[in-house]
Design a protein around this nucleic acid. Structure first.
Length: 465
RNA sequence: GGCGUCGUACCCAAGUGGUCUAAGGGAGCGGUCUGCAAAACCGCGAUUCAUCGGUUCGAAUCCGAUCGACGCCUCCA
């Protein structure tokens, strides 16, 4: 089956064809680095990670750009509160962000452009918009985009501009502008901005939020590119405004496919920084759950459906990930020399797995294929029906799936401590003497130390609990 | 007020006109194996897809109404 994605722009699943055969240019909205991202944010980044891995496995060369928003209202406010410079604050949280990405095994983007490093590019684009009549400066040194100058405004969010009700927030906006829906491209300096200011043709100030994405995406990916991703809450106003800015500045199309991931809910409600009902990655890891389990929880569900986070689900995920790890170890025991080849062969099961993903990244369907196969393979292993060659093929399949899911335990497993090893030996001794009570007690002690001992025909196997 | 999404077993979750008397996972129960366990495997588990009505030869899938949940409408992944 050919790859199809649900495009927010058309609200339909469409066959996916990149502009240039075999190459995909991808832009994903990155974090605003004013505090640590929560796991809801990572749901989106994980979705994008799987999207990218999938496209790569399907033979596309993906060029991925993710922005870092390091200047906006929140970053400025936060740096004032903490009495540190904007750069100090944003550097701190940018580093945290990268560390979290690594822990979740999210593959890095090719570029992470920062807003503050592209002020000149943004000013140039804003100037172009003013010259072409899409934007206008105001007395306070700001520049606004005039939405009525762009007939396409509202095409992504499907807004009915006439029936829009202006909310209190718009009315209380303390910048001056012609129409309530017009949005800022450039914000004139205000005292609370402190030292955060750049010179521009309109005086001191700083860029508006939306302009950075239009400018940086087109700078690195070209004026028209393939895929733009983000959370659903970015559809309006952020992405709508990006389209307006980019299309008016270039006179061409902008992103061709818009993919939006749904929210992670907590106790049935939206998790967001402003509500304070969120967990950070640290909050979850410190409870002892492995990163693979968190990856699994956040990926186990279609990206366009809401996903409810709970500790129950995390426990469930831990079980699943353990089961997959056990399966992996079982195969590796038969063929310890196996290493996944650079170019993994496409086995029939691997193909079925990817087939499911072809349909708008249907991860649950793909996992069903995987689990079915895993059960059958375990069955074959129980009856030792597999040849060495067949085992290698199974490992190829497992690694192909892992290329997308990345849920196998890391190779750098902690070595079994000496005291645990001694207890295991003592227990073996007790077992040969058929002193079952002693053996059971020792198993409990090993367990208390965080290790699990299983008796197999080949002897005891010790794994971390 | 406008726009939109969703409601499938104890829990999570695919499927969106016939192959569905509905995948897969977790939990539970019974069994094989085991000194006992663990792991793995086998079996059990929705005649039914929020409710009601309609379209159709045929609906979980389309249409309408009702109930319920959630989101967006310039902080938001």
């Amino acid at each position: 089956m050919a790859i199809r994605f649900y495009n927010t722009l058309t609200r339909k699943k469409e066959p996916f064809h990149p502009l240039e055969e075999g190459k995909v240019r991808l832009y994903t909205c990155g974090p605003t680095v004013y505090n640590q991202a929560h796991i809801g944010n990572f749901r989106t980044f994980l979705f994008e990670d799987v999207l990218k891995r999938f496209l790569t496995v399907r033979g596309h060369q993906v060029l991925h750009v993710m922005n870092i928003t390091d200047v906006d209202d929140k970053t400025i406010r936060r740096s004032r509160e903490e009495q540190v410079s904007l750069t100090e604050l944003t550097t701190r949280y940018t580093n945290r962000f990268f560390a979290d990405l690594k822990r979740l095994r999210i593959r890095p983007a090719d570029r992470y452009p920062r807003a503050t490093e592209h002020i000149g590019d943004m000013i140039a684009t804003i100037q172009k918009l003013v010259e072409r009549g899409y934007a206008y400066p105001t007395d306070d040194g700001s520049v606004y985009f005039s939405i009525q100058a762009f007939p396409g405004y509202g095409k992504l969010a499907r807004l009915n501009l006439d029936q829009m009700q202006s909310t209190e927030r718009i009315q209380s906006d303390d910048y001056t502008k012609d129409a309530p829906m017009d949005f800022a491209l450039w914000k004139g300096w205000k005292p609370e901005d402190g030292a955060v200011a750049w010179d521009s043709p309109w005086g001191k100030g700083r860029p508006g939020w939306h302009i950075e994405c239009s400018v940086m995406s087109t700078k690195y990916l070209g004026e028209e590119f393939d895929i733009h991703c983000g959370g659903v809450d970015n559809i309006f106003p952020h992405h709508e405004n990006e389209i307006a800015q980019a299309e008016c500045a270039s006179g061409q199309g902008f992103a061709r496919y818009w993919l939006h991931s749904e929210h992670l809910l907590i106790e049935g409600g939206k998790m967001s920084k402003s509500r304070g009902n969120f967990y950070r990655l640290d909050d979850v890891l410190k409870e002892g759950y492995p990163p693979e389990a968190i990856r699994y929880v956040l990926l186990n569900g279609h990206y366009r459906s809401k996903l409810n986070f709970s500790w129950d689900r995390l426990r469930e995920a831990t079980q699943v990930v353990k089961r997959v790890a056990g399966f992996y170890r079982r195969l590796m025991e038969i063929d310890p020399a196996y290493r996944p080849p650079e170019q993994l062969p496409l086995t029939p099961v691997g193909e079925a797995f990817l087939d499911a993903l072809d349909d708008d990244l249907d991860v649950p369907e793909a996992l069903a294929v995987f689990f079915d196969w895993m059960r059958k393979t375990n069955q074959e292993l129980d009856h030792s029906q597999l040849s060495a060659e067949e085992v290698r093929r199974r490992l190829d399949t497992l690694f192909l799936v892992n290329e997308i899911m990345d849920w196998l335990p890391s190779e750098t497993r902690t070595a079994i401590p000496v005291d645990v090893q001694e207890l295991v030996e003592q227990r073996q001794q007790a077992r040969t003497e058929t002193d079952w009570a002693k053996a059971d007690t020792l198993r409990e002690r090993i367990r208390a130390l965080g290790w699990e001992v299983k008796d197999t025909p080949k002897g005891p196997v010790v794994t971390p609990r």
